[in-house]
Amino acid sequence: MSTEEPLPVIDHDSAPYWEAAREGRLDIPLCGDCGKHHFYPRSVCPYCHSDKLGFDTVSGRGEVHTFTIARRPAGPTFADDVPYVVALIELEEGPRMMSRIQTDDPEKVHIGAKVEVTFVKATDEVTFPYFKII
C-alpha cells in the first residue's frame, strides 16, 4: 500500500490496539465485568457499560461476515489498489472489525470464508491488521 493512504488518528482509546498491531499482535478490549470482548476500543464496555476494561491478545482468526469488492477507489489515494476487498471480519472471540482481505483473487472471497490476521506496515507508527483466507 502507498503511504499516502489515510492513516488512523490514534487516540487514548485506540493507542494500545495500534501499539500491539505495530508489534504484530491483535489486542482488543476485554471487559472485566461481563467478560466480553469488544471492538472498536472504547473506554466503556458497549454491552454492560462497565469501565473495567483491559486489552487482551486474541487469536487473530475469524471469518468473513460480509465484504465488498471496491471496483472504484475510495478516493484517489486508493486508485492503485483497485480492485480490492474491504471486509467485515467476525473474530472467533465475537467482535467484528473492518479490514482488508489480502488476496490476488478478489472473486474467491466469500461470506463465511475462514481468515487469519496478517500485519502490514504502513509507516513507523502504523501497522494495519489485514486478513488472509486460510
Partner: peptide
C-alpha cells in the same frame, strides 16, 4: 474519500472503505 479517519472512522477509512456505497454494498 470522505470520512476523516478519526474516532470510530480510524477503523474503517484507512482500509479504503468506499463511503457511503461500500457500507450499503456490505
Amino acid at each position: 474519500g470522505g470520512r476523516p479517519s478519526v474516532l470510530s472512522m480510524q477503523h474503517e477509512t484507512p482500509y479504503g472503505m468506499p463511503t457511503p456505497v461500500g457500507g450499503y454494498a456490505m
